[in-house]
Nucleic acid binder design. Structure first.
Lengths: 299, 299
DNA sequence: GGTCATCCATACCTTCACGGTATCAATGCC
DNA sequence: GGCATTGATACCGTGAAGGTATGGATGACC
C-alpha cells in the first residue's frame, strides 16, 4: 500500500509541468477526468496535497515541488533500467556511443581503429544526437558512453574523462566586412545571431549553457538547424557560428570563411559514462580514447 | 507500450535474488502463478529473456543481470521520491538525521545546540538505525542527512563531509589475560569473535566493510546485537569489540576494560546527504557540524 | 531404471483499477 | 449578471492482476 507507480509519477510530472489538467491529459493522450482521479489517488497514497487547484488556477504545493524535482530522476532511472536490459539482451551486444555528428575533435576514426584492437572491444554503434542531447541519451539508457563538451551542468552519477581541448573559430560570410580582418575579437561579433536564434553574448556562448532539456512547452523552442541550413544562413550573412577548429577544418566551403577569435574560450571534449557501468568494453574505450588523444596532442 | 512499472521491477528483483519463483512469491506475499505471468509479461515488453528457467533451476541471463543491477537504484529513486514528498508535506517539516545510536563522536549535543541558533535551522529528528543502515535510510528518503563512518563503499549521488577522526579501542573482559597488558596489538586479538559473529582479522575489520545490504536470504545473516548483549558477551569473554574512543568513554562498565590497540586504524565520522539536496537546512547543519568538529579538534 | 517430490507453466475465474463519456459546479472575465 | 473555461463527480465497460486447481517436466533417491 506504500509503493508509487511509474504511471502515477508520469501523470504527476505532466500536470506539474503544464499546471493545467486539460493540457496535461492531452500531452498524455488520455481524457481529463481519469487524470484528475489519478492525481487524487496519488495524493491519497502519499497523504500529502501536491497541487493547489481551483477551476481557474493550478499551482504546486511545497510537497509537489519536492516530488517534481525527485520524480524526474526516478523516471529516468526506470527508463534507463529498461533500455539497458533491452540492449543487453540483443544477440550481438554493441557499445553505443552518443555524440553530436562531427563533434569528435577529429579523433573518432583513430579512436575507433585503436579500440578495435582491444581484446574487450565490442562493435561500436554511433548514436548521433542533437546538441545537448548526449546526456539525456546516457541517462535514459539509449547509449553506453557519450562524447560531449565539458564542463557539464550536471554530472551527477557520471564519470567523466576529458580528451582534448581545441580552439573555436568563427564562421562568417566571405562577403562580411569582418572577413577582411585576419583576427577578430568576440566584441566585434556581439549582437550577431547564432544558429539557435539567440544573439551572441560576449562569451561566445559556452556550448553547454542551454541543456535544460525539453522545457514545459516553452514559448520559444530554440531553433535546431542542420549543417546545410547553417552554412546557407552564414553565406547569406544572417548568422555567425563558432565551431571548434576540427569541425571547421572538416567543412571548407566557398562563400564561408573561418577566422580565429582571439579571446574566444576553447572547448573541451570529454567522454562520460554512468558511474555504475562495470562494462569492460566501456573501460577499454575510455582507455583507448585517452591514449589516442594524448598522442594526438603532441604533434 | 514502452514503460516499465515499479511493480514489475519489484517482482523481477525478488525472483532474480531468490532464483526461485515459489520463494519469491512468498516474499512478495502473493501466489506463484501470477508472479510467473508477471515476469513473462515483463520479458515480453522488453523483448528480452531475463531468466533461464527449467522446473529444477532458475538462473539469470546476461540481460537479467543488467536489469537486476539497474532495477535496484531505480526502485530506490522511486521510493525516495515518495518518501521525500510525504515528508515535505508534513505541517512541521523537520530535518531527519540518520545515525547509529552513540556513534556521534560525542559531538552531537554541541552540534545540535549550535545548529539551533542558525536562522535556517529546522527541528532535528533523529533517525536511529542499525549498523550500516544509514546509507539505505538516506537513499530511500527516510532521512535528509546521515552521520556515518567513511570511506563509503558507494558514495554515488552523495556529498560527504568528514567531521572528525578518532581512535578505536578494544573492549575486553576484565578477566581476560590480555587485560593486564596496558597496550595491545591487533595480532594479539586475531581469531577472537566480533559482535557480528565473524572472527577478527588483522585489520580489526573496517567498520564499513559489511555494508552489502540485506543479502538475498544469505545463509548466515550477521548477528545484530544491542549494547546490553554486547557488554554481556564481552564480560563473559565470548567476544571482543572495537568501539571508537568516544563510544567507550560513554560506556564505562565494571567487568569490561578498554585498552588501546597500537596498530588499530582510526575511524572517521562524516556527514552525508543527497547531492541534489538544495535544502538550506541541510547546508546549515553541515556548516555548523564542521565548525563544531573543527573547534572540538583543538582542545 | 522406476517412482516420487519439486517446481514452473497453464487454464480458468473473480475482482477492481483504469479509462472513457456525460455532466455538474465553481471561478474569473467582460 | 451572463458566459466561457476548467476541474470534479457520476456512471459504465474493459482488461489487467491476483487467486485456485492442475498439468507436466525434471532431478533425486531407492
Amino acid at each position: 500500500m506504500d509503493d508509487l507507480e511509474v504511471r502515477q509519477l508520469r501523470y504527476f510530472v505532466a500536470v506539474a509541468e503544464e499546471l493545467h489538467f486539460g493540457r496535461a491529459a492531452l500531452r498524455l493522450g488520455m481524457a481529463q477526468p481519469p487524470l484528475s482521479r489519478a492525481i487524487r489517488e496519488l495524493e491519497r497514497r502519499l497523504g500529502v496535497r501536491l497541487l493547489e487547484r481551483t477551476t481557474r488556477h493550478v499551482s504546486l504545493t511545497p510537497a509537489g515541488e519536492v516530488l517534481l524535482r525527485d520524480a524526474k530522476p526516478a523516471l529516468d532511472a526506470v527508463a534507463a533500467a529498461g533500455r539497458r536490459a533491452r540492449h543487453a539482451g540483443r544477440a550481438e551486444p554493441g557499445l553505443r556511443l552518443a555524440m553530436k555528428a562531427d563533434y569528435d575533435g577529429g579523433l573518432l576514426p583513430r579512436i575507433l581503429a585503436a579500440y578495435r584492437l582491444e581484446p574487450a572491444a565490442l562493435p561500436v554503434e554511433l548514436v548521433l544526437v542533437g546538441r545537448g542531447e548526449q546526456l539525456p541519451a546516457l541517462r535514459e539508457g539509449r547509449a553506453d558512453v557519450a562524447l560531449l563538451p565539458v564542463p557539464l551542468a550536471d554530472d551527477r552519477g557520471l564519470d567523466v574523462e576529458p580528451l582534448l581541448t581545441e580552439p573555436r573559430l568563427v564562421a562568417l560570410a566571405s562577403t562580411d566586412p569582418l572577413a577582411d580582418r585576419p583576427r577578430l575579437r568576440v566584441a566585434d561579433l556581439a549582437g550577431r545571431t547564432l544558429p539557435d536564434g539567440t544573439p551572441a553574448d560576449r562569451d561566445g556562448r559556452p556550448p553547454t549553457a542551454v541543456t535544460a532539456g525539453p522545457s514545459p512547452l516553452a514559448e520559444a523552442p530554440p531553433r535546431r538547424l542542420d549543417l546545410a541550413q547553417i552554412f546557407n544562413l552564414i553565406e547569406l550573412g544572417s548568422i555567425v557560428w563558432f565551431p571548434p577548429a576540427s569541425v571547421a577544418r572538416r567543412h571548407p566551403r566557398p562563400g564561408v570563411v573561418y577566422r580565429t577569435v582571439e579571446d574566444l574560450g576553447p572547448i573541451t571534449l570529454a567522454l562520460a559514462w554512468p558511474q555504475d557501468s562495470r562494462s569492460p568494453a566501456v573501460a577499454a574505450l575510455v582507455r583507448t580514447a585517452t591514449t589516442v588523444a594524448a598522442t594526438a596532442a603532441r604533434p
